[in-house]
């Protein structure tokens, strides 16, 4: 019985491959045919802005820490109003593997991936993107989120002025 099952199993395999040979291939003939990826496709990385127009990136280094290939580097700095921002921000797309861990790590929804997958180039240096190349004038996928409206360090709203905050406490107040 085993022998028969074995022979049958083998023959079936041959039949399947033979049959498949005559089906239409699923290949898309890039670059003549192009495919529109889904919105959550992971390709070229951008830095988005918050709904108030400010840079979302606070240069917290979480994306560079999450990046398994170390392609993100930056330097944080402090603006006059106390806002933390990236003095420079660099993504080396020659190294990037488009794994999306940076976007998952981003606490401010600043770094996002787009579906623009055509970023091949002959000069590796052209694939080293600086902040000017990365920053877009759009909120991207989470249009309403502004980190500084929740952070509670008083950059967008005065201290204690966010929705989930009490006004600043007075230490000399003796009232209960």
């Amino acid at each position: 019985m085993n022998l028969i099952r074995g022979i049958k199993g083998t023959a079936q395999a041959y039949w399947i491959t033979l049959r498949t040979m005559f089906r239409k291939p699923v290949t898309i003939q890039y670059p003549e045919q192009k495919r529109q990826p889904f919105p959550r496709y992971r390709a070229r990385i951008v830095l988005t802005r918050d709904p108030d127009g400010g840079e979302r990136c606070v240069a917290c280094y979480l994306c560079s820490a999450a990046c398994p290939v170390d392609c993100i580097s930056m330097q944080a700095a402090e603006a006059k109003d106390g806002r933390r921002y990236a003095e420079w921000f660099r993504i080396n797309f020659t190294r990037c593997i488009f794994c999306g861990l940076c976007t998952e790590a981003c606490p401010t929804r600043a770094i996002q991936m787009t579906s623009d997958y055509e970023i091949c180039n002959r000069d590796p240096l052209d694939l080293v993107y600086e902040k000017t190349d990365l920053l877009i004038d759009d909120t991207g996928k989470d249009p309403d989120y502004n980190f500084y409206r929740h952070a509670g360090i008083g950059v967008v709203n005065p201290r204690g002025g966010n929705e989930d905050e009490k006004p600043p406490a007075d230490v000399r107040d003796l009232l209960p």
Partner: peptide
């Protein structure tokens, strides 16, 4: 405690 670890130097 505020929600500001990304802009806090102690983070990490």
């Amino acid at each position: 405690h505020p929600h500001d670890c990304p802009v806090c130097d102690e983070g990490g």
